[in-house]
């Protein structure tokens, strides 16, 4: 099948399943993206300046571009959209493609997580079946399970936040776990010096700002920090539990059993992992579905289920997931949960 026919057939499935065409902008305001996604996103972007000195980039990602368009158009409505277009990404690795042809769907303002996650998965699966690609396999992860686990552990809130934030950066995460085991980040000598300044600063106007932070904000964080109640022996145990969790890798149908074993072995509450129904259903869509707790750690914006679909020669042909925080971080005042996926046309071509 030619790639044009691929697209036509996939789009037919998208439309049949109720997704409406949306055409996100090709050129985006780079400063807007950097301000909201952080400087490390810049490495992926092709950036240039227009005559007025404004920095513009080619859309690095169609999900981000679609969210920006959604926010511009009408953020009140839920929308089920599909797009067909190219994303442009810079990479240090010469083997990576710069131009990626993508066909994707998104449910922006997704109110029912279970129904919508499954809807996205089913539509992508139907599209792949429609273009007669057989013997596919799925790899799936769920960032929220990791978050459930962290919440159930007895470590200071600061450390919980920290571990959650850096889940998607495996190398740094490893360092963090080592640090959790070995060191305290509170230096007693230093603290004594600063305590003096602490009492001086208490007398200041608490809403006075020092480089954009209120005095009250600084003092309350200082206070929280010196009361950090970490115990080294406990931390070793906790780091071990987290490492063990991240090794779980099994067929999706066996996930529930494995998680229960894991909880029992580590003497954790049996209701830590809240809901596995989507993953269980996924194993019915495709029997070759592998679940891995360590999967989906390369894109920061995912917050729930993450998946990739491969063809018989193990090339990735589609990927997607839930991203409940992205639209807010792009400037929306409200939380707007969302889920989506895209088919990578480049890897369909034979």
């Amino acid at each position: 099948m030619k790639s044009k026919n691929y697209s036509e057939n996939i789009i037919k499935v998208f439309k049949k399943d109720g997704f409406v065409l949306s055409e996100p902008d090709v050129l985006l305001d780079s400063d807007y993206i950097i301000q909201r996604s952080g400087e490390n996103f810049r490495k992926l972007m092709f950036t240039f300046e227009d005559d007025a000195g404004k920095s513009i980039c080619l859309r690095p990602d169609l999900t981000v571009a679609s969210c920006i368009k959604y926010l511009k158009d009408n953020p009140k409505k839920n929308s089920k959209i599909f797009y067909s277009g190219q994303a442009y990404r810079r990479s240090d690795n010469r083997k990576d493609k710069v131009i990626n042809d993508q066909l994707g769907i998104e449910i922006l303002g997704s109110k029912n997580k279970f129904i919508d996650d499954l809807k996205i998965l089913k539509t992508i699966d139907n599209s792949i079946k429609k273009i007669k690609i057989k013997n596919t396999s799925i790899k799936v992860g769920d960032v929220s399970l990791f978050q459930n686990l962290i919440e159930s552990l007895k470590i200071p809130q600061r450390w919980k936040m920290r571990l959650k934030r850096h889940f998607w950066r495996p190398q740094y995460f490893k360092d963090l776990l080592n640090r959790l085991e070995t060191s305290s980040d509170v230096d007693p000598a230093e603290i004594n010096l600063d305590k003096k300044r602490f009492s001086e600063m208490k007398k200041l106007n608490q809403s006075k700002e020092i480089a954009n932070r209120k005095v009250s904000e600084i003092l309350s964080r200082f206070d929280r920090k010196i009361k950090d109640p970490r115990l080294f022996s406990e931390n070793k145990k906790i780091a071990k539990i987290i490492r063990e969790f991240l090794k779980i890798n099994c067929s999706a149908s066996k996930l529930e059993k494995n998680l229960i074993n894991f909880l029992e072995k580590n003497k954790l509450r049996n209701n830590v992992f809240k809901d596995l129904s989507t993953i269980k259903k996924l194993s019915k869509i495709n029997s070759k579905t592998i679940f891995s707790t360590n999967f989906g750690r390369d894109i920061e914006y995912y917050t729930g289920i993450v998946f990739e679909i491969y063809n018989s020669s193990k090339k990735e042909i589609a990927r997607g997931g839930r991203y409940d925080g992205l639209i807010k971080s792009l400037g929306s005042k409200k939380n707007i949960p969302a889920v989506g996926a895209a088919i990578n046309l480049n890897n369909l071509k034979i």
Binding site: R158, M161, R162, D185, F198, M201, E217, I218, L219
Partner: peptide, 24 residues
């Protein structure tokens, strides 16, 4: 006067506060 910030790890935490609480 950012007396709560001694290390890069502290700064990392503060940088997320900026994002989460001030959205900048």
């Amino acid at each position: 006067d950012w007396i709560d910030v001694q290390t890069v790890a502290d700064l990392e935490e503060v940088s997320f506060d900026f994002r989460d609480k001030k959205n900048i």
